[in-house]
Design a protein around this nucleic acid. Structure first.
Length: 489
RNA sequence: GGCCCCAUGGUCAAGCGGUUAAGACAUCGCCCUUUCACGGCGGUAACAGCAGUCCGAAUCUGCUUGGGGUCACCA
């Protein structure tokens, strides 16, 4: 059995969206699960779409995601070069195109853009038409003359109009199409660069790729590839087409439609490991039903034969949930490092930031949630007095005012503003006055935070705010409630 | 429009001829709790439709419907 070798072959056109990332991941998992090797190849045969810096993005994304490759542009494994423009300069593609022309499996085409466009117009369906093999009938002399005259040309694959072509995919099974449905695809463009379709086949063969992993959008063009392999007499690799990842409208994720890239998600405060973990589960599920998996665990358990056929909707809500799980499991030091910038963003006062970050840990899904969660510590937001009413706590606005007034001197007298001390102090207070715990805790928490929900109870918040600030907030609340009462009357 | 692919709850997803049709996210309720969260418990919610094969069909076949993909000198 030959060693498994897979590849990820992105084009340097910008940020990577999650569909691409998952293809890279599955490709990596298939190789590593089998103890094989994983390779990176850069497909930059479209000089117009090249985006400067895109190469760095690819490296960065892969490295953030923890997907490491054994061979690639900066890591020679003997099958290089790994960048198609460099391979093109070596004449690799032209050599193979020449072989096909010699064999009669490919031919030069000198048709102009205008003629090609006119084909579309007179075709049965205005917008779609295949090439009519016009240049196939050119004589040797005509071809030579055209070539010598420097007329722009491409090289096309010659697909017969009769018969059928079948190719096999590990996930989708056999797919057979009529040859007459297959266009005479262009192999070499007029600028001398190979098309993706051609370069892909040549390189996958030359580089010893055993499993071709790619998106489902290539499924319908795959039969053409087989014609190429057959023309060369090469072994056809194992194809693994992954199901599409779509948005909530069930449309394919793409940069063009403005869908989030991996980097966008990271910018939104999502952890690379969580993204990788989530995306692994789009189209595949582990046997033990355990969804949180590390990359090594995925490597161990991944079985490409169990990849799903149907497209999957990218559900950001579940990704966020998973991200929250990752945050909670993160060790404190790492968590602290990542959370601190967001905490500083919200807090400029001299407060115990570490305590604050610990409070936030179990209550956020992404780090971006932090400022909103703790902003009240910096400054009490405007709030409505009705917040003092709480059915379950059995408090009302007047009762709250009363409770706050009564508890104020007690808090003023207290010296220990640690959570535990405050807690027992207040419970004792409630008991003495014949009040429910909630009837004193709820008003205080509200007074001190101005919020319906806070990342901690009344005493925890007071501990962080300190005595002075806590008292001043409570006094302000008493004022606010008293004023409200006056207005009512 | 041609061709190709797909079809289990709102979403992800088990299931591969006999199951009370898992589980997760979301949602709802309860418990825990000084609020929220975490955690625990429970509820709502699905085999697109129609034929056929079979003692028996979510599972096999066909058709219909629905959805998606692709038809470039882009990858």
């Amino acid at each position: 059995m030959k060693m498994v070798k897979t590849r990820f072959a992105p084009s340097p056109t910008g940020r990577m969206h999650v569909g691409n990332l998952r293809t890279a991941l599955y490709s990596y998992l298939i190789a590593k699960h089998a103890g094989g090797s994983f390779m990176l190849r850069i497909e930059d045969t479209d000089q117009e779409r090249f985006v400067p810096g895109a190469l760095e993005i690819i490296y960065q994304t892969l490295s953030d995601a923890g997907i490491s490759f054994d061979e690639g542009p900066d890591k020679d494994g003997g099958a290089g070069p790994y960048v198609q423009s460099e391979r093109c300069a070596l004449g690799i593609y032209n050599k193979y195109a020449g072989q096909l022309i010699e064999q009669g499996d490919a031919y030069y085409c000198f048709c102009t853009k205008e003629r090609l466009d006119s084909l579309k117009e007179q075709g049965s369906d205005k917008e779609y038409a295949m090439y009519d093999k016009h240049c196939l009938s050119l004589s040797k002399e005509e071809i030579r003359a055209n070539l010598e005259a420097g007329i722009p040309h491409v090289v096309r694959l010659n697909v017969p109009n009769e018969g059928t072509t079948t190719f096999h995919d590990e996930i989708y099974g056999d797919i057979t199409v009529e040859n007459k449905e297959l266009d005479d695809m262009i192999l070499i463009k007029s600028d001398g660069y190979p098309t993706y379709n051609f370069a892909n086949v040549i390189d996958d063969h030359l580089m010893g790729i055993t499993h071709v992993v790619r998106g489902n959008e290539y499924l319908s063009s795959s039969p053409k590839y087989n014609r190429l392999y057959e023309a060369f007499g090469w072994d056809i690799p194992t194809y693994v087409h992954c199901p599409l990842i779509t948005d909530e409208e069930h449309h394919k994720l793409s940069k063009r439609s403005g869908h989030s890239s991996f980097e966008d998600l990271v910018d939104q405060g999502l952890l690379p490991q969580a993204i990788v973990n989530y995306v692994a589960l789009l189209g595949w599920s582990p046997e033990d039903n355990q969804e949180i998996k590390t990359l090594p665990e995925l490597v161990k358990e991944f079985d490409y034969r169990k990849i799903n056929k149907s497209p999957a909707v990218f559900d950001i809500a579940k990704l966020k949930w998973m991200n929250g799980e990752y945050i909670r499991r993160m060790d404190d030091r790492e968590y602290q490092d990542r959370a601190m910038p967001f905490i500083r963003q919200a807090i400029s006062k001299d407060l115990d930031l570490q305590k604050i970050s610990n409070m936030a840990k179990s209550r956020i899904e992404t780090f971006e949630d932090i400022p909103e969660l703790i902003g009240f510590l910096e400054k009490v937001p405007d709030y409505d007095c009705s917040m003092y009413e709480h059915k379950k706590m059995k408090t009302t606005i007047p009762l709250s005012l009363e409770a706050l007034k009564a508890v104020l001197p007690v808090l003023e007298a207290a010296d220990d503003y640690g959570n535990d001390a405050l807690y027992s102090l207040l419970l004792g207070f409630a008991k003495d006055r014949g009040l429910k715990n909630g009837q004193v805790m709820w008003p205080i928490r509200t007074a001190v935070s101005g919020k319906q929900m806070t990342p901690g109870g009344a005493t925890q918040l007071m501990e962080i705010l300190g005595k002075d600030e806590s008292l001043s907030r409570i006094r302000a609340a008493i004022e606010k409630l008293s004023e409200n009462e006056r207005k009512e009357q």
